[in-house]
Design a protein around this nucleic acid. Structure first.
Length: 417
RNA sequence: GGAGGGGUGUCCGAGUGGUUAAAGGAGGCGGACUGUAAAUCCGCUGGCUUCGCCUACGUUGGUUCGAAUCCAACCCCCUCCA
């Protein structure tokens, strides 16, 4: 691994952020010489970012911390098309309404990581809909399209899977990389942005932007990509049964977010501490060297630190404390996720099956029933074997709640109202 | 526009008239073992008022006692030709 002069690249390098750059020496040069403006793009394909985006966000964080200017580019325009890179088939087109809504929701996730403002090093949030939606087709083709060779575009790995599998790649999708390339040039013109960062799957798109910048403006632009993250056992980051591990509190509680990190595989602890926390390297080295069950301490630190950055220190401490009480004392923690039921309903008795659905632990009565058969369902820590069991006021503990558990890890409190 | 191929459950993928809620795999969940880990083994994996009923194999109709399987029309995708 090369030695870098610039603070930014040194931090990224020692923490394992760098997969590939277009020019190690050139990047190092500009980062040590001046305040660099760099951007990363996020497409509004869902109403929340997920853990997979976190690496890129952390990269932007370090960029700002080491004295440079990050730009968060929302893909309000490119979202109208959909990135075909490495996808097996075309995504469904999203309606402009959904895109706009997603764009506005995604913005909130960045506020804890970056300081936005108008200063030279303040982060900026830009939406490429601003320029992409007004392009004049023929003019665009003449200005930008003439710089692209279809022969070359077809040779990119990112579209090869589609072509090799004889699946259609629509002209619409084929244009995605041109628009992303154009974004880079537009940001260079507007903000003097010279670096684009992204996942390794974006390499082709980014390099296209670099070429286009050179051809149109004789600009010297750079690419910096991140490794595509998987867990040690090869699973993609951030996938669970209930879907992705979302960053939005609305879509995933801070307690569940904390739990996700707490359950990190041993082999990933060090890597994740470096990537997703801001702890000093020697502290990470110490945590990482813990053996056997002691590594659980490191996992708790990891979970708390990552949660603190996203949801705030207080929420993280609460989640940690809730987990400690629940798992280590077996006690009933007040702050477990809670659902409320009508008190009069409870007086009559609520069916266990549907109560689990209400609590969000299962998605159907049938699923609950299967879990009962499998011995996974507990009420106040007692295994339930009768799927017709009803939950009544008599099940209320001295704390006035009923604790429902699915398996060893998922718990929800039911509170009468 | 013409010729051919295809659309199956979360995904991949078998199935070409009946015991098919649909093989197999992946993924996911649960159980055992552990350390809220990994690996391993076992179970589950459409819904419901569950000895039964309902929905489901691109859509809509039809043939039949009976269809994912046969027929017709339509929609979408792919390949080649124009």
């Amino acid at each position: 691994m090369p030695e870098f002069k610039s603070d930014f690249l040194r931090v990224l390098s020692e923490r394992g952020f760098i997969h590939q750059t277009s020019d190690d020496a050139g990047l190092d040069e500009i980062f040590s010489r001046e305040t660099v403006t760099a951007y990363a793009g996020f497409d509004p394909t869902a109403a929340s970012l997920h853990v997979g985006h976190l690496t890129l966000i952390m990269m932007l964080y370090w960029l700002q911390q080491t004295g440079h200017k990050p730009i968060v580019l929302m893909g309000g325009g490119t979202g109208m098309i959909g990135d075909p890179s490495f996808k097996d088939e075309a995504r469904k087109l999203m309606t402009p309404d959904v895109i706009n809504e997603n764009v506005s929701k995604l913005k909130t996730s960045f506020t804890r990581y970056l300081e936005f403002g108008d200063g030279p090093r303040d982060a900026a949030m830009v939406d490429n809909a601003e320029w992409l939606l007004q392009l004049n087709y023929v003019q665009f083709l003449r200005d930008v399209g003439r710089h692209f060779s279809v022969n070359r575009m077809l040779s990119f790995d990112s579209v090869k899977t589609r072509l090799d599998r004889d699946q259609s790649l629509s002209f619409l999708e084929f244009n995605y990389m041109i628009l992303q390339a154009y974004d880079f040039v537009e940001l260079y013109r507007r903000y003097g942005c010279t670096v684009q960062m992204g996942g390794s799957d974006q390499w082709g798109n980014i390099v296209n932007g670099i070429d286009l910048g050179r051809r149109m403006d004789e600009a010297e632009l750079f690419a910096l990509t991140l490794p595509l993250l998987t867990t040690s056992s090869g699973a993609k980051m951030g996938k669970t049964a209930s879907g992705a591990v979302w960053l939005s509190e609305e879509m995933l509680s801070s307690y569940d977010f904390w739990q996700y990190w707490r359950n990190t595989e041993d082999a990933d602890v060090g890597r994740f501490l470096r990537l997703y926390t801001t702890l000093p390297m020697d502290e990470i080295a110490r945590l990482e060297s813990l053996d056997g069950s002691e590594i659980n301490e490191a996992k708790k630190v990891l979970a708390t630190e990552v949660t603190a950055m996203l949801h705030g220190r207080e929420a993280a401490e609460t989640a940690a404390e809730t987990a400690r009480k629940t798992f280590e004392e077996g006690a009933l923690a007040e702050s477990l996720p809670t659902v409320s039921v009508n008190r009069s309903e409870l007086a009559e008795g609520v069916g266990l099956l549907s109560l689990f659905v209400t609590a969000g632990l299962t998605t159907s009565n049938g699923e609950t029933r299967r879990h009962v058969r499998g011995g996974a369902v507990r009420v106040n820590d007692e295994t339930v074997s009768d799927d017709r069991r009803r939950v009544t006021e008599e099940d209320l503990t001295s704390d006035g709640v009923v604790k429902l558990s699915l398996g060893k890890k998922k718990h929800v409190l039911v509170r009468p109202e």
